[in-house]
């Protein structure tokens, strides 16, 4: 087994009396796309926020690239990035200006070249001088994804990244994410409520319910083990019955 890019042990998060994440342990390996699945409030986004150091865990350990996140957060997240449908870019800036700001923030070398590259990857070079507020939600999502690749990260944390994309662009985005994991050995932690998408894109899945891991494995294994026709059926069982 290669060394894990992210290693999580006994991660727990309490918000007052609510246990949002309950003793979760898992690893993400180089070049792997790990899907986090679960109904609303299962703890998926909280886990992503804890990995980024945006929320402090109640207990447990997060190691990124072998280092303790608590002690070396700045060095760790230098090689990470994230995109979420619920987080935007400054809407009074142009697409290119946003990318310039984040390229500088991450101290990207050859900034202009890298900006051109990520604009091309997401096919948004034609709108690079458009203000963010004038973009469609699909274009904004692609800008968020372009930002998430600006520093050539080793680990990408994507929280429902295709939620506002039309099927065509969503499919292109998945294909692109697949190809960058293969070509550049990037690891991805991915959440989505689109079960077909999760089945298609994930190398491995983790099913969360009430903050606990209740199932994990390769998508086909999970479906087979829990006697579902597809992932959606397994998901519905989890959401309604609390177990697969």
């Amino acid at each position: 087994m290669p060394e894990a890019v992210v290693e999580i042990k006994g991660l727990t998060k309490d918000f007052k009396t609510l246990r949002a994440v309950d003793d979760v342990s898992f690893c993400i390996y180089p070049g792997e796309i790990l899907g986090l699945l679960g109904p609303n409030g299962a703890g998926k986004t909280t886990i992503i926020h804890m990995i980024l150091g945006l929320t402090t865990p109640t207990s447990g350990e997060i190691r990124m690239f072998g280092c303790d996140l608590k002690k070396t957060r700045q060095a760790c997240v230098q090689n990470a990035n994230f995109s979420s449908t619920y987080v935007s870019m400054p809407n009074s800036l142009t697409v290119k200006e946003c990318l310039k700001v984040f390229a500088r923030l991450y101290k990207v070398k050859n900034r202009n070249k890298r900006i051109t590259e990520v604009l091309n990857i997401f096919e948004i070079e034609d709108i690079q001088n458009h203000m963010v507020r004038t973009l469609s939600s699909g274009q904004q999502t692609r800008l968020n994804l372009a930002k998430s690749l600006i520093n050539s990260p080793k680990i990408l944390l994507l929280d429902e990244p295709t939620a506002s994309l039309d099927p065509d662009i969503a499919d292109k985005t998945r294909t692109m994410l697949r190809s960058i994991t293969r070509e550049r050995n990037i690891s991805i932690l991915y959440t989505s409520h689109n079960m077909k998408e999760m089945e298609e894109i994930s190398d491995r899945l983790i099913f969360l319910h009430h903050g606990k891991i209740i199932a994990q494995g390769k998508p086909k294994e999970v479906i087979k083990n829990y006697r579902g026709k597809n992932l959606e059926e397994v998901f519905l069982k989890v959401a309604r019955e609390g177990h697969p």
Partner: peptide, 12 residues
Amino acid sequence: SKNLLNLFASPL
């Protein structure tokens, strides 16, 4: 502009 998390998810 809902940009705060993008900033604090970086090494800032």
